[in-house]
Nucleic acid binder design. Structure first.
Length: 300
DNA sequence: CCCTGTCAAGTCACG
DNA sequence: CGTGACTTGACAGGG
């Protein structure tokens, strides 16, 4: 079990997700931004290693506009050395890596243009992980997509589009239960059809449940990951007290997290803390998990 | 320097 | 059909 947080570290003073407006695009601007983002990513991973936070979600903004037609820069070649160094560092320190393209990626859209843009975006994500030389335990997580008034047909459309994907993309993809459309059960059905692993989102399973206990859902999702996929990834959050239903908590609820540790045993998993205060909650979660037999400790 | 409108991309609820 | 929520930040221009 490794614990981590998404994209940004709030305490080290740099941000690895710098971007700019499309109207400001220039090759120089893009290259300078990617250089800055990669340097900050290296700093962030160093912080994570020092604090034994061994799971990390890389930002999709590392290469701004990477899948947009305006992007003519061959960033994979220009930054080949930096990306390989990044991959070496990740391997040497046994970090687990994920990425999470945002809401615009909809593989099962009815509009072929949306599907095409989504595939381009996925190709960017996988190209980045490939360029770093990471194995297929580094994952790209997406949702099944839209319902369009007919969940069954839309689910089948996801399956069809998934089967058409380039193998280099497909082998990195995992699907996650979302907060209002596709449940864990829906994801498991897609898994049964095409073998894609299911990432379990603890909070979404609360707001959009298909009825399984957390313990059962973790067990079912865990079985969808093969050896080359690595162990189950989990997104963890809880309801913000007093907030609208579905609002992520601002800080970690220690008791709730401890309960999840108990409920998820004995299945090993890596846990992503989707809490607003990022690494602060991850540090607290790691301390709470320190007594758990699954938790990976530093080698010293 | 601070304030604030706007940002590549999607889906869905609502009026 | 148009708008805002989702969730969220931060770029960038204007005062």
């Amino acid at each position: 079990m490794k614990i981590g947080y998404p994209c940004i570290n709030r305490s080290i003073g740099c941000r690895g997700n710098r971007t700019f407006r499309l109207g400001s695009y220039s090759e120089e601007r893009l290259i300078a931004t990617v250089r800055e983002n990669l340097a900050c990513l290296a700093e962030t991973l160093s912080y994570n290693v020092r604090h034994n936070l061994l799971f990390f979600r890389m930002t999709s903004d590392l290469v701004p506009f990477a899948s947009h037609p305006v992007c003519s820069v061959d960033w994979q070649t220009i930054f080949a050395d930096e990306l390989l160094q990044l991959g070496d560092y990740i391997r040497e320190n046994r970090l687990r890596i994920s990425m999470h393209p945002d809401q615009f990626v909809v593989i099962n859209a009815k509009d072929p243009g949306i599907v095409e843009r989504s595939v381009r975006e996925l190709a960017y994500h996988t190209a980045l992980l490939d360029a770093a030389g990471l194995d297929t335990s580094a994952k790209v997580q997406i949702h099944i997509g839209g319902v369009y008034g007919d969940k069954e047909r839309s689910l089948q459309r996801f399956i069809r589009e998934y089967e058409r994907l380039d193998e280099r993309i497909a082998r990195r993809l995992v699907i996650e239960n979302d907060d209002g459309r596709y449940t864990v059960r829906d994801c498991l059905r897609v898994h049964e059809a095409v073998g894609i692993p299911v990432l379990f989102d603890r909070f979404h399973h609360e707001v959009n449940s298909s009825g399984e206990t957390v313990r059962d859902a973790v067990g079912l999702a865990a079985k969808t990951w093969t050896e080359s996929d690595g162990i189950l990834m989990v997104d963890y959050s809880s309801q913000q007290p007093g907030g609208r239903r579905g609002t992520h908590a601002a800080t970690l609820d220690s008791d709730h997290f401890a309960l999840f540790l108990a409920e998820s045993a004995p299945h090993d998993c890596d846990i992503m803390l989707e809490i607003k205060d990022k690494e602060q909650s991850a540090l607290l979660a790691a301390s709470l998990a320190a007594g758990d037999g699954r938790f990976v400790r530093p080698p010293f």
